[in-house]
Amino acid sequence: MSTPGPVPSSTSVATLPFSAQDKTQEQVSEELQSVGIYQDLERYEETIQQLSKSVDTFKPDLSLIDKVIECDKKLYETLEEFDEYYKIEEELSRLDKEQKNIDNKTREILETLNTCYNSLNELPMLEQVEFEQKVMLKQREKIHSKVVLDYAMKLAKFTRFPPTFDKSMIGPNNFIWPAEDSLRKGMLAMASLKKKELLLDALDEDNVNNDNNTSKIDEMRNTNEDSVDDRFNNKEQVQDATEDTERRGSFEFTANGKEDSETKSEENPDLELDLDLDLFNPDEF
């Protein structure tokens, strides 16, 4: 008679797939009592013990033999079911593998989706990007006043605006006189309109000047008292006066134009007097 080998250590509770891992010893023993094969084994063991006791005490109980036969029959019927349990176990392990495979795939898909969701969330929203682009374009359309002023400072002749500049006015209209080319155009236009009158006036002036010159020559002849030096001085004065009048033609703008001219006349009153005498005599017209 051979005795069965020791129970393998691989049948540990820690590697079980079922929920039996979480069960306590009492629950396992309760569950074990309801297992058919275990009940058969216990009943078989108990019956054999009773039979051996009855035989050994020389009080054999034949009913126990029937009971043993019944137990044996029941036990082997249960053992025959083991083939089905093998198939069931194989089917369960296959389904378990399939379930794990599906769960892994689902987890992978969900992880990928979650990663995509996070990466999409990290990207800026389309509306926000469009809004920012619009703002940027609007800012580019506007030129900063400082840039314009810097550019104007490069082009400008002066670093400061003129004191007569009226801020409410825009452009060269702030000057109190028309521009030089406008003046010229105006004069030419007027001249073209009053051509005949001007020509007649010019002819009259020539005649009057000729008369004056002859009278002046006579006077000069009469007054031979003036020395050559005086004449020379007068000529110099005349030249200065003509130069001064020529300068007046090209008027230079200053802040206090009138005051400047007055101060000039105050500084050099003799010159003004000479100018009036030599070049322009309003009484003659």
Partner: peptide, 30 residues
């Protein structure tokens, strides 16, 4: 008979012990 059936009882006891030590097997045959 007690001595003669000891091997039967030992085999039955070993089978019971194997089943007791494996809750998964218990769950399967339950």
């Amino acid at each position: 008979l007690d001595a003669a059936t000891s091997s039967i009882r030992h085999r039955l006891k070993t089978a019971k012990t194997l089943l007791q030590q494996d809750p998964a097997a218990i769950e399967l045959v339950s």
